[in-house]
């Protein structure tokens, strides 16, 4: 029988990272994710890994760039304002085609905002975030189990595509303690890292760079990256369906909001309302095809987010033209309760 654990989300994530072979963590304190660096500061010593409390998020993302260029699995975690500071580094990581795992325990904003749970960084995470024409893979856990499991996956996908992967969670997922199954790490089959820097011994020198000045080079590089993002869409889209069969209304929601939506759906079902859930697990690549297929049958959708309307744009772009897409936003503060979402779905049912 698999071992059960009772863990806090942030710890489940950190345990997953160590299990996936991450030995380099660089980070800067910011609430509500401090238990992640605190965990690594204690544990990295025990696995002969490296923990540095960097002088800023700008430094931590660039330390990752260095460790990743050396072939190591490296990660950082932060919360929204910290992610803003990391966007430069993320752009360079994407441009230089370096793997990295970056965790955003999304707090509310803009500006200093607040420390409460939010999904306000959906655009920042899924649209690249920094300068230039690039994307990062974005994984959205919805339970402590997924905080762990998707971290294992994140390191594999980062290596598979040589691209940064963002885990987009929030204070609720980070702070709740929950039962989970301690799954072993079964790595994907990954290409050899034949690009890492280690000194030009017995081979030609290698470069890790994102500067392309020669005629036509930049254009080729951009299309090469584009092709990679297309491949992500073909091979690594994930979502969960819940009670979607014979549903007349589908709620589209991710992360914490999706969990609350599940409870709201149970309440609705108890009242005889045929409501189901479509939960994107990868926010980029967005499960547009699965959602389109669903919209051939179901014509009413309600997107629920802990923001004032971001993912709803992707939902509208995905569904068939004759499907209605409604939106219910719970702006940051305290997270929504199931009863609140039940009322919201009744209005459009």
């Amino acid at each position: 029988m698999e071992k059960r654990l009772f863990l806090r989300g942030n710890h489940a994530l950190a345990i997953g990272a160590i299990k996936a072979g991450c030995r380099f963590y660089f980070g800067y304190p910011i609430t509500p994710q401090n238990d992640i660096p605190e965990f690594f500061s204690k544990q990295m010593v025990k696995v002969e890994g490296c923990f540095i409390q960097a002088e800023s998020e700008v430094a931590s993302i660039n330390m990752i760039l260095g460790a990743s260029a050396a072939g190591a699995r490296a990660m950082t975690s932060s919360s929204s304002p910290g992610l803003s500071l990391m966007q430069e580094g993320l752009s360079y990581l994407a441009g230089s085609e370096l793997p990295a795992v970056v965790v955003n325990i999304n707090r509310s904003g803009p500006g200093l905002g607040g420390i409460s749970a939010s999904q306000g960084d959906y655009f920042q995470a899924t649209r690249g975030g920094g300068h230039g024409d690039y994307r990062t893979l974005v994984l959205a856990p919805s339970s402590v189990q997924e905080m762990h499991d998707l971290t294992l996956l994140a390191f594999d996908l980062a290596d598979k595509y040589r691209n940064p992967v963002i885990i987009l969670a929030d204070a609720v997922l980070g702070q709740i303690q929950e039962t989970m199954v301690d799954r072993p790490y079964q790595p994907l089959e990954l290409p050899p890292k034949d690009w890492i820097l280690a000194g030009a011994s017995g081979r030609d020198p290698r470069l890790i760079k994102s500067l392309y000045l020669k005629e036509g080079e930049m254009e080729r590089h951009n299309w090469k990256l584009f092709e990679k993002y297309q491949r992500m869409k073909r091979e690594d889209v994930r979502h969960e369906n819940y009670l979607e069969e014979e549903a007349e209304l589908i709620i589209v929601s991710f992360g914490t909001a999706a969990r609350v939506a599940k409870s709201a759906i149970r309440l609705a079902r108890a009242e005889g309302l045929k409501v189901g859930l479509f939960r994107p697990i990868t926010l980029f690549p967005f499960p547009e095809k699965a959602l389109f297929d669903l919209s051939q049958r179901v014509k009413r959708f309600l997107t629920i987010e802990m923001n004032t309307g971001q993912m709803v744009e992707d939902v509208k772009l995905s569904v068939a033209r004759d499907a209605d897409v409604h939106f219910y936003g719970h702006a940051p503060g305290s997270p929504p309760a199931p009863e609140e979402l039940l009322n919201a779905l009744k209005k459009v049912y």
Binding site: F6, A117, Q177, S334
Partner: peptide, 24 residues
Amino acid sequence: GSLLAQAAFMENLNVTYTPIYGVE
């Protein structure tokens, strides 16, 4: 809160423990 949640875990039940966070 943790104690009750831990006990439920030990009885093989599913459990979530959420410290209320933020403004409150």
